[in-house]
Amino acid sequence: MKVNNVILQFTAKIVFFIIFFFAVNIFFAGHYTPGGGFVGGLVTASAIVLLIIAFDLNTVQKLLPINYIFVVAVGLILSLGTASFSMFVGQPFFTHFFDYFYLPLFGKTSLHTAALFDLGVYLVVVGVTMTIIQTIGEDE
């Protein structure tokens, strides 16, 4: 018997974007409100997992042809790079920098290098979670 997943698949397509944007919101809000790279990464991974549940592993892999191990590696390099950047300008390791900038659309915004570190964390969390789920899912 073939199961018809129309409602699940249709809802997943819409809900995926809602979850993903919520994840982006959590990620950027992390400095002033609860949230940050770790939670943002987990929520993003859960959005992808929703797609995997609604469709299947191969479809999602075709949709997002990403090698998640590389995502982990890139995330690690980004985090380490942010942390060690300060070494090259004569500050102790992990010293962060921030300043206020006037951006065209946003107005006065504070940009902080901690966000780059968080981006690394985000990538590592997404990469690790998806690697775990894909490897277990593919296993026969």
């Binding site: 191990i69 590389f70 982990v72 590696a73 690690l76 390099i77 380490l80 390791f93």
Partner: peptide, 12 residues
């Protein structure tokens, strides 16, 4: 840091 960094690039 150096072994850590090389561990990362070895993942590729």
């Amino acid at each position: 840091i150096i072994p850590f960094f090389f561990g990362m690039i070895l993942m590729f």
